[in-house]
Design a protein around this nucleic acid. Structure first.
Lengths: 223, 223, 223, 223
DNA sequence: TATGAATGAGCATTCATTCAT
DNA sequence: TATGAATGAATGCTCATTCAT
């Protein structure tokens, strides 16, 4: 019966799947969902057009699967355990400066997603529950915990979480998308610091009598 | 044979243009740019398909012209003179609570814009220079002025401006788009207040007991 | 407004519709429904492919409309008033030899119809109610009337009507379709006569004592 | 290494062939030839798609082979020796009521055949020589023999044979196909009787009072 | 022989745009 | 200017068939 062992077969299948998805991601990001053609995707993946349909239901399924990839690959790891052990600034700095940076690399893909989210109700629901809510909810939980410990003053944690993400996106992602010339690393770092400063400054329950620029918030999180 | 005076003729022409543009806006927002058809737009505008081409170069031109409308209609008035005479909280509260609220009504359209911005370089440049930069620059100027006066502590005003917009968008616009159920007016108002508080809290040069500018939010997160 | 008068416009439209339908009929008959391509139909009609869709909903709609044409063009006239005034043999001879002969010319088209009738429930229902039932019912009514008058002996008129059609089809239509070489006119005529003889022979209430070959059925339809 | 004896091997091969053919028949009848997919056929047969091609040349070959099956399985036995020993009515009644009834069960398949017969010349020739001619010829021979013996009056035996088949098909097969609700057994039987009566009535050489062969249907259509 | 992944030609349909009236 | 019929390029998807294992 000349069969490949099932394990190998499955591995190859997954590999192929990933290749197609990668190609689709590239083309989608480049042309937008509607303008992208399955022809092009197949060409980039180095396969025949029909082969796509052995792995995916159709063009739209490619986008949905891509959404799944984004979820598992980059966003879910946004708040790992280690992060929670850092002090406040470091946490946010890391979150913004390192973790969420992964968003930047997927920025065009994310935008493509937003394209379709406007139009496709199911996709919208899916994105909302699988990406937006989890991420903001985790961040919200983080802020809430800090507030409860008195490290931050009590306010609407969800609002803070969303504002944080928005502030980040508008400073780092949007300008890139809109074509502002790329920021050099150091400036990028400085900007991240300033943003953290700005955000934390507003959270400090009691600005230290003589703090530096912004935040003397570490002393006395509990009297 | 009873020619209309040029002035009237021109007025009618402008009127027709606006009607078509309005129809296009509705359809674009509803279906997305690619899915929208000129047939539908013409139908909604109550004209024949071909007539569109007497007023616009083509479908893409409709979108570009729509961008122009957005600029003049809603965004440029974001920072009017009167606003500058309000005190700090009121200013931001107004900005967020009233002015930028107009964004919400155009949210669909703006998203459609973003769709195409990803794909269309000219549109992107146009949007960047005509909308994004003006708005953030104005806001930046406002913050800079306040900083120079010592009302806010000195920091990166541009960053603050963008963060402010981002925080707003992520709290008010995105959830709406993603389909979170609509917020009732009072809650909406409260959220806006909390957001302003959060933003200003971080801007106050020295949130000492002597509440200078704005917010009495610093006293006692824990008694 | 440079309009063609509505009447002319409508006439042209109908004309074009007919042309497309004729082309579709030819191609369908030649290749079968599934194998026929809109490209070919458009080419034969001398129009662009897209134009078809200005007149019809799609390929299937072409077939359905064709069914409508068949109904109005050939089958409804199968039993006209004049026919009813002929004597019995003449009636059947005419019916078979002249009227139903039109079926032959549409034979391939009818077969295409049967193709799809197997597969398309709506088409089947449509054909059943719009073609099969009317034709057989009319014929049945004819036979019933003759039976009631005593011209034919009393039996199941519907069965007789259907048997008549079947006998005709199997002798004239099917052999043609299956590729038996075409019958010369005279032979055709003779066969029709024999068939009528055969059919009527079975209907005669009282076979004349000394009839010729087959039918002495005219004398004494009423004592 | 344990080769199967050729005989067994061959038997298994034939078995497999039959399974595939049966599956193809089911699917063809259900969906029509063009709409049927090899994937479905393979699935129903419980084999892989590629395996079909170890037994058949391709999809079209399935149909042609199916034609062969029909010939040998059902149609050739239409006129078996035993039948010839029955009296006239019984013969026809049997032929119609029992033998040709098998057509009904294969009606779907036969229609599918007709589909392709329109389009495929080779298939048409094959069907004509292998099915249509044999059946009608046999029947024709039967009628001719009866005519020669004086049991039926002399007329065109081929025409009678075809008319008989057509009358049967139009009364029993076509209505079923077209979706008329199924006839209950008794009614079915009665209809068959009426049809035979009708057919034989026309065949009786001299329907004199002295009912020769079969049917007492000539006496008194009106008292 | 059996498998099923890969293939790629082929097709119905859509839709922005043109242009004769 | 307004119209809307005509256009035809472009595209997602299907499916019979091949072939390496």
């Amino acid at each position: 019966m000349g069969r490949k062992p099932d394990a190998l077969r499955e591995r190859l299948r997954q590999e192929r799947r990933r290749e197609i998805l990668a190609a689709a991601g590239r083309i989608f990001a480049q042309k937008g969902f509607e303008k992208a053609t399955t022809r092009e995707i197949a060409a980039l993946a180095g396969i025949a057009e029909g082969t796509i349909y052995n792995y995916f239901q159709g063009k739209r399924d490619l986008l949905i699967s891509l959404l799944g990839s984004l979820v598992t690959e980059s966003l879910q790891e946004a708040l790992t355990a280690e992060l929670f052990n850092l002090d406040e600034q470091s946490f946010l700095a890391n979150l913004i400066g390192r973790r969420l940076e992964s968003i930047t690399s997927n920025a065009d893909m994310l935008l493509v997603l937003f394209q379709q989210i406007m139009v496709d109700d199911e996709l919208r629901r899916s994105y909302f529950t699988r990406v937006f809510l989890p991420v903001t909810t985790q961040l919200e939980a983080y802020f809430q915990a800090r507030m409860d410990k008195g490290i931050y003053r009590q306010t609407n944690a969800r609002m803070v979480a969303r504002a944080t993400v928005g502030a980040f996106v508008m400073n780092f992602v949007v300008p890139t998308i809109l074509g502002e010339r790329a920021m050099p690393g150091p400036e990028r770092k400085r900007l991240a610091g300033e943003l953290v400063d700005f955000l934390i400054g507003g959270l400090a329950p009691r600005p230290a009598p003589t703090g530096g620029t912004a935040l003397g918030l570490r002393e006395g999180s509990k009297p």
